[in-house]
Amino acid sequence: MTDGDEAVFAVVGPGAVGGLLAWLLQRAGHDVVAVGRPATVDAINRDGIEVRSELFGDGVERVRAATEVPEGASVILATKSYGLEDVLPGIIAAHPAEVISFLNGIEHMGPLWDALPGIPVAGASVAVSALRASTTVIDHRSPFVRIEVPESAADFAAVRALTDAGPSVRVGGSEAEVLWAKFRLLASLALLTSYWRQPAGAALSEDPELTEAVVSEVAACSTAEGVPASELDLVRALRSVPGGMRTSLQEDLAAGAPSELDALGGALIRVGERHGIPTPALARILSALDADS
């Protein structure tokens, strides 16, 4: 904390989503530090973060950047799921006031809780389409930034600041409900677009039986984890996605880059195994994508 108990917001992982959130917080007048790797930190300190957005406008914000989390900061965690292991020691060392995670998936919360006993930690979700055009330039492509936060995090300083900064922020429900609401849609869409190497519309219609099987298995896994899900509602949500949309998993796999395949597909397989739920469609997709990667 700074003098007067004003929160310092450390955005850990200033990529497309984290960089956009840091830019929005800085623009709203909050004390923000983008925490990243040395090359990223040098670039942000030199050039600031530039966002191009029809919703928020275009501009550059001079966001402070560092390789370490400031002591006592309010942490906004926005890395890829596979990056958690690398950044967690630095978060622990900073003794943060709170941590709100925007990681994709459902399995990251256990390690966060275990590593940060006594510190308020919450898993949230963000729906946005953003692409990092370069280290410091972000194209915000969707006409929205929608953040979902569990009721347990209603009093987090980061939640108040993000609400003030421009995104649509909804607070309510349990952490499991918030995480699974995004996970069901994201995992289904990412796995199918990656498997077919097609944008959303074509991928969902390529093999209706496979799509139906994936939806059925994902809904069953969610329900078994205590978050009841309707197959029909999930199908409707998938059909509402713009037909030309591509997913980050799809792009990462195509580029041979590290991906969230295990955090999405692998996590669902493990949920199925725990609850005795057969997941042959998911296993088929995961096996094919593993073989290609």
Rank of each mutant, 00 (worst) to 15 (best):
V215I: 14
A257M: 13
S259T: 04
P228H: 13
V215L: 13
S194C: 04
E225R: 08
V241D: 13
A213L: 15
T223M: 01
E209F: 11
L238A: 11
L261F: 04
S194T: 01
S188D: 04
L192W: 03
A203I: 05
L261V: 07
E225L: 10
V241F: 14
E206D: 06
L234I: 05
D262N: 10
S240R: 15
A213V: 09
S216K: 15
L253A: 06
A229N: 07
S205H: 09
A190Y: 03
A187W: 00
R197M: 13
Q250K: 13
S259A: 00
P228W: 05
S230Y: 02
P228I: 04
V214D: 10
R239G: 02
A219W: 10
A190I: 02
T211L: 00
S216E: 15
T193E: 11
V218C: 08
S259V: 00
E212G: 14
V227G: 04
E225A: 08
C221V: 08
G244T: 00
P258I: 09
A203C: 07
A219V: 14
E206Y: 03
G243P: 09
R197A: 15
A202F: 05
R236T: 07
E206R: 12
L189M: 01
V215K: 08
E260W: 05
V227M: 04
A213S: 15
Q198G: 01
A213T: 15
C221I: 07
A187R: 03
T193Y: 06
R246K: 11
V241W: 15
S230R: 05
A190N: 14
L232Y: 11
L210D: 06
L253Y: 06
L204F: 04
A213D: 11
A213E: 14
G243W: 03
S240K: 13
S194L: 03
E251D: 14
M245P: 01
E260G: 00
E260T: 06
S230N: 07
A187L: 01
A190E: 04
S222Q: 03
T223R: 04
A255M: 11
L189W: 06
L234M: 05
S248L: 10
A257H: 15
L192H: 03
